[in-house]
Every structure is written in C-alpha cells, then in structure tokens.
Design a protein around this nucleic acid. Structure first.
Length: 270
DNA sequence: TCAAGATGATCAG
DNA sequence: TGATCCTCTTGAT
C-alpha cells in the first residue's frame, strides 16, 4: 500500500534492520548490479522517507533513492536468507535480516545535491516535522485545476495517494471537482490538520482507517466494518454502495487516469 | 487457472 | 492521453 504512511513505516523498519550496520547489496535480477556494487559492504547511516520517496544513506556518500510506484514492494525478512523469488531488483543483507526490492519505478544511487533537488520539488509531507503547509496552499491556490487532481500532485502535498485523497475530501465535505483557487485558507488548514492526524494514525497502525468515532460524531455507536484494502473508509472503492453518513450511493469518475470517489450529498458542489 | 485492475509517476507524441 | 514499468490480489471461469 504505497502511500506516504507506508513509506514512513518502511523507512523506520529499514532503519531498525540495517541502521549503523554493514550490508551486502546485490541485484539478483541484474538491472541494478553496477550500482549495487557501489554500496556492497558499506554501512547504512540512515533511512528516511519524504512523501512516497525512500532514501538510504551509506557511509561513502552514496544515497539509494527508491520509489515503489504502483506495484513495487520492499520486504524485510529475518535471517536466514532464502533464495530470491521472482524479479528481485535489489537485495540488502544485514547481520540478522534481509530486504528484497521488487517492481519499483525508481531504484538509483544519487548524490546529496540530487536529493536536495528531489526534496525541493516535493510539496509538504504531513508526516514530516519540517513540513510547511503554506507551500502547499500557495501551489493549490494559484491553480484552477480541481482539488481532487491537486491533492494527488506531489508538488502540492507529498505522500497523499488515491485513498487519502478520497477520504480527506469526504471528511472535509469538499467536492473533488472544486477548483483549487476556490479553496480558502481556512479549509486548506482544516484539510492539512486532518491529513496529519490520518496519516500519523496510518503510520501507527499500518492501515488506512478514516471512519473513526472520535473524529465523526455521526457514526458513533456503529459497528466498524473493515474493507478489503485493510481499513475502514467512507468512499474509497465504495462506488454504488450507500454512504455511511447519509445513505446516498457513492459516485465514481476517472480523473486524470485515476479513480475518484465521492458522495454527492455530503460533498456538494459550491 | 487465468485475466483484470490497482494505493504511482514519467515520458513520448 | 496512452504506454510503460512488471507485482500482487481478487474475481471469473
């Protein structure tokens, strides 16, 4: 589930497994062999995430940059090491655990300057303590594109994906086709504050739960139902089903190649 | 057993 | 806007 909270957890897990330890690095698939040789046997100094990007710093100034994309995965397992299964782009092996990277959109070694360029391109990440939500508002507010499209733009908000988009807009009672330049600062601040809480909860639990009684008085007392993606949500992938709050059937539409979900009663166009 | 679709982003045209 | 990367889960057959 590669939204920002997944990468944040992954970075913490990699730090725990390999931080301050020497690792062997190989590319069983072969596509990353030359680069893997440059970090083979080196010490992992730190692992961190920014939005959906993952960075591992090594003690020879090499930085591993990974973006999982839609289908990628980076799985950590305990020793003993098993033979690689499938297309393993990169395998890291530490003293007590190992990790296999598959299907990633990006797996490359970069310099500190290139890392800074990537961070500069990204909008504020609700999970990072150094995030400045004002930068996101500035980008959102000058665009006539829909807020549904802008929330998926990593230059506006880093780490928000299709689930957090659908759910945060529902919770804000905002119609996804509202133009960004019609979003007030007050509404943006509320959206940001909610995303900070939702994503932090995702880091804590490893799942996306947005229907929570402490946030939503109207659903208190109702038995929670876990959806197929592992959490409970209001609208995401619930097209044609009744809205948990008002009973209206949840709508769906493809927006810029991605499926959008919303309740036309709770999220009226203004 | 197999095909389709998905939590993403980039590039060519 | 469509193709591409090429994994994993789900649902249909």
């Amino acid at each position: 589930m590669p939204e920002g909270h997944t990468l944040f957890r992954l970075a913490a897990d990699l730090q725990s497994a390999f931080g301050d330890r020497q690792v062997s690095a190989t590319s069983p698939q072969g596509r990353f062999s030359e680069s893997a040789a440059l970090i083979d046997g080196r010490l992992v100094e730190s692992a961190e995430s920014a939005g959906k990007h993952l960075f591992l710093r090594f003690d020879n100034e090499q930085i591993l940059h990974v973006h999982l994309g839609l289908i990628g995965g980076f799985r950590i397992a305990s020793a003993p090491v098993s033979p690689p299964v499938g297309q393993v782009r990169l395998r890291l092996v530490g003293p007590s655990s190992y990790a296999d990277l598959r299907g990633a959109t990006t797996c490359e070694l970069i310099s500190a300057a290139e890392l800074e360029e990537i961070l500069a391109r990204l909008g504020p990440d609700p999970l990072r303590s150094d995030a400045d939500p004002e930068r996101g508002f500035a980008r959102l507010h000058k665009s006539g594109k829909s807020v549904g499209a802008l929330l998926m733009d990593q230059r506006v908000l880093a780490g928000v994906g299709n689930i957090f988009r659908a759910e945060s807009l529902f919770r804000a009672r905002l119609h996804p086709l509202t133009p960004g330049n019609r979003i007030s600062r007050r509404r943006w601040n509320a959206l940001w504050t909610d995303l900070v809480a939702l994503m932090a909860y995702g880091v804590e639990t490893g799942r996306i739960d947005t229907v929570r009684s402490e946030h939503e008085p109207e659903v208190m007392g109702r038995e929670p139902r876990v959806d197929k993606h592992g959490g409970e949500v209001y609208v995401y992938r619930r097209a044609g089903l009744a809205c948990h709050v008002c009973g209206t059937r949840v709508k769906t539409q493809v927006l810029e190649g991605r499926n959008l979900y919303w309740c036309s009663t709770c999220q009226r166009r203004r």
